[in-house]
Amino acid sequence: MNSQTFNKLTPYMFMAPAVIIMAIALLYPLGYMVYGSFRDWDPSQSISETEFVGFKNYITLFFDPAFRESLSVTLIFAFTVVIAEMVIGVGLALLLDRNIRGMSVLRTLFILPMMIAPVVVGLMWRYMYHPTVGTFNRTLKSWGFEGVDWLGQHALLSVIIADIWQWTPFIFILALAALQSLPRSALEAARIDGATGWQQIIYIKLPLMMPVLIVTALLRLIDAFKVLEVILVMTEGGPGLSTEIVALRISRTATEFRELGTAAAMSNYLLILLLFFTLAMFAFTRLQEARAARLARQVQEEG
């Protein structure tokens, strides 16, 4: 091997360990899952003993009302929590973007929920929602109201509230970071130009934060589609299918119904959905970069 080809190969040799680990840890299970989704597969069988069934698993799922129900619960859950979290998180960031005494303590308090393990969050909210001894109903009753059947009649709303409680801080810190990196002088110019507080938010702050907010929302959306532990602990998908999100259904299909092929196919549906959002996010950032590069080029050409 002459030194020139050796030099060319050097970077790939350095990359090799990472590539090998990625391949084993990421691509192998993914490939296994895709392969398995085309087979009729019971957990007692090894994968080589299974029967190839083509797209049967996918087609069955597509017409399965339970899976469709699960998918619509997931969509409702994901979009509701992300919209609510965006509104509350960005609102809080706008409110707390100022220097008052004790603000750093307040900010730390706000991001605490995010740091709690999801299972703990689930347990905590399950106890708070408990129909007789839970905090909410006891408080309501002490005020003379009727208790609410939180995890029964309003199960989806209740898990949505818990998720908003846990993940609003994520939006909050990112929005706050975006706010604090805004050009101060542009805001000062807006104040001199006559913008009121609201007008500054609507015409200057939000438009300038938008790139960060869009990426944040997409990240949260991707995450919300995969939520599992909190709901598992709080409702186990019930009552009925009212809170059975896709991730939960996948886990039950694999463990309770022992249909690994169907579970794999379901995972792939979810994967395709998430891939769509991820690609949307990439496309968005690429678009931004391309626009910035085009502007820079335009300036350079004019000298």
Binding site: A186, E188, A189, R191, I204
Partner: peptide, 29 residues
């Protein structure tokens, strides 16, 4: 408030609104 003092200001770093074109920057007030 600054807006009630009837003044205009030019900043060191120009303080333009990056998301508005030149016409909208000029016409913001």
């Amino acid at each position: 408030e600054p807006k009630d003092r009837g003044l205009a200001m030019v900043f060191q770093d120009y303080a333009l609104y990056p998301h508005m074109d030149v016409a909208r920057n000029i016409s913001f007030a």
